[in-house]
């Protein structure tokens, strides 16, 4: 099962993604991995990482730090993976030393879809406010939009998360757990 969840900042998408991943893992067994993409540098991002770690504590996730280059990641068999999040991954591929840009972003996701038994991907709703694609971050917005559209197309389930509640745009019905 593959799930794409997208939302703005502090919309509850992480918690919903954790619920989905835990639920899929409980049904199918195998390793439960949290694929973390953030390169924590300053105090604010460290606090953010700490808050997310605290929220995941006790849920059984094994954390794998992977700020870029998902294409070379070898997953164990039958893994349930929660990838968080595409906004950070895109920034790292586009702007960090050693990043592979938009092509690496897409090929990394393709590889992940090919390997994971269950995959929950968290994306970022960053397109409704602030500067648009004509600004200096246009390349970032286009790369992020491309990979998020790919995930929404590829996943069996796709939802926007608003106030912690999923608004499903794709839903196979009976397969979806009540969260």
């Amino acid at each position: 099962m593959t799930v794409y969840l997208e939302g703005g900042s502090a919309c509850g998408k992480s918690r919903l993604g954790e619920s989905w991943a835990v639920s899929l893992h409980q049904r199918r067994g195998g390793p439960l991995l949290y694929l973390a993409t953030m390169e924590a540098g300053d105090g604010e991002s460290l606090r953010r990482v700490a808050r997310h770690r605290a929220a995941r504590a006790g849920k059984g996730f094994q954390t794998v730090e992977r700020p870029r280059d998902l294409a070379s990641l070898e997953l164990p068999p039958r893994a349930t993976v929660l990838l968080e999040d595409l906004g950070n991954l895109a920034a790292n591929e586009l702007y960090s030393p050693g990043g592979g840009g938009g092509p690496a972003l897409l090929s990394g996701l393709e590889r992940l879809f090919a390997q994971a038994e269950n995959l929950v991907v968290i994306g970022n709703a960053v397109f409704a406010e602030g500067p648009g694609p004509e600004g200096e971050l246009g390349a970032y917005l286009r790369a992020l939009s491309a990979v998020q559209s790919f995930c929404a197309a590829r996943c069996e389930v796709a939802a926007e998360v608003i106030c912690g509640i999923p608004l499903y745009h794709k839903h196979p019905g009976k397969e979806a757990p009540r969260l």
Binding site: G7, G8, S9, A10, C11, G12, E44, A125, V126, F127, A128, E129, G130, P131, L137, Y140, L141, I162, C163, G164
Partner: peptide, 25 residues
């Protein structure tokens, strides 16, 4: 509904949209 744009440069703006989001949840 706020927080659906690129992360603001101003730390106070970042804190605000996250506080709005968490309270709304």
């Amino acid at each position: 509904e706020v927080g659906c744009g690129l992360v603001p440069v101003d730390p106070a703006d970042r804190a605000w949209r996250e506080a709005v989001g968490r309270l709304a949840c």
